[in-house]
Design a protein around this nucleic acid. Structure first.
Lengths: 211, 211
DNA sequence: TACCGTATAGTCGGTTCCTACTATTAGGGA
DNA sequence: TCCCTAATAGTAGGAACCGACTATACGGTA
């Protein structure tokens, strides 16, 4: 599979918006925020302007007008090209079909859970669980007064449901792991360095961990 | 919450390895791969050397020896400093406690699921589900002949279980969504552009809806 | 009316990150 | 013995990315 010319998904958002109507970059950013798409795309003004330039370079979008409103800075309005419309759909298709490796920060930290020791690890996970629960609740609220009240079709916010599902799974794993640390079923070996290399204690004693 | 000086989690992996013993960068990379940690950290030689330099700049690690084996390129061996050991634990703690926004490619694509139309969207998701199922199976195999056979304590591969859980959740959502597309419970509105703006068809009534 | 906060619109400079490449050596097969 | 491949170890250049900043306009308020 050949590498994509543009990999930043913010470009996908730009293409998506320009499917609807021509726009200038600042308007793209505010529209994305209005529609709560800033949870799925990292909307950063610096990146946005770079991204737009890159899209122009590849001929996926093109400037159609440079307007000036009063003495505000000049705005360049862009529109998609036919090429861009095709690539938009092809890109979505590819992203959906093929899972790619992602490296979430949480996974990195979980890799070294051992380094905190059982008590501190459990405590940290408890705090995380709290934050996750709160975020889930807030997101449910957002869903309720957009899709729930019929203001927006469900399909247009489907990624929010998807994210919600992922957080709920993470929360479930986190809570289960907290429980396993506490009841000792996630054994915490004690590591020692010998001349041969590393050794660790085995979970043979069933009384619980030695701290 | 102040921004971290170093944000690339590959630096966390480096610190983790150097807790055990001094090493040169190439050895870090191969050790991470041996231990299947390359699923949690993006191990890229270019980034690795940059990361190591950054860690030295901040005084978290330091070169302890530059050895030469035959006429191979010179290797610089690094070890953690006390500062680095403290930061290692603090960083893990912080990453665990506080969920941060991530922007997975899949989420971006799901945002524009609508653009594919119901049939192509369902087809793409079916393919993804296949890939996910396969990856889950492969990972289970890896777990079986490391932790399962007692070669490695479970705690040392706990992040693999965590990733597995996340993929299973994604697979479940994907399958459910395929089903909802097929049986029509995920309604696909038809969008039309009018002078007022955008309109879409509603799931219950026929055309003519609110904006 | 003077001031302040927020919205509008975008620029700039530096760091980070990654791809592609170089160069050497050990090992194995023909 | 000689060649080929894989492993060893790292370098270099450029693209991507982001945070911090500039500058104007507008609305409320004291």
């Amino acid at each position: 599979m050949a590498k994509r010319k543009i990999s930043n998904t913010l470009a996908l958002a730009v293409l998506g918006l320009l499917q609807e109507q021509p726009m200038h970059p600042y308007e793209m950013a505010s529209t994305l925020r209005e529609r709560h798409k800033d949870g799925s795309f990292k909307v950063n003004s610096g990146s946005l302007y770079d991204t737009v330039e890159a899209l122009v370079r590849h001929g996926w979008i093109e400037p159609v007008e440079t307007a000036r409103d009063g003495r505000r800075p000049e705005r360049t309005v862009y529109a998609t090209t036919e090429l861009g419309q095709g690539e938009f759909v092809r890109w979505i298709d590819e992203l959906l079909r093929m899972p790619v490796a992602e490296y979430p920060k949480f996974m990195a930290a979980v890799s070294y859970l051992g380094a905190l020791g059982p008590d501190r690890a459990a405590e940290a996970l408890v705090e995380r669980a709290g934050h996750l629960a709160q975020r889930i609740e807030e997101t449910n609220t957002v869903l309720a007064d957009t899709v729930g009240s019929g203001k927006v079709p469900r399909l247009f916010m489907i990624e929010v449901e998807c994210a919600l599902h992922a957080w709920e799974a993470e929360l479930a794993w986190t809570r289960r792991t907290i429980a396993e640390i506490r009841d000792g079923s996630l054994f915490w070996p004690e590591v020692e360095q010998t001349e041969q290399g590393w050794t660790w204690s085995a979970p043979t004693d069933r009384k619980g961990s030695t701290r």
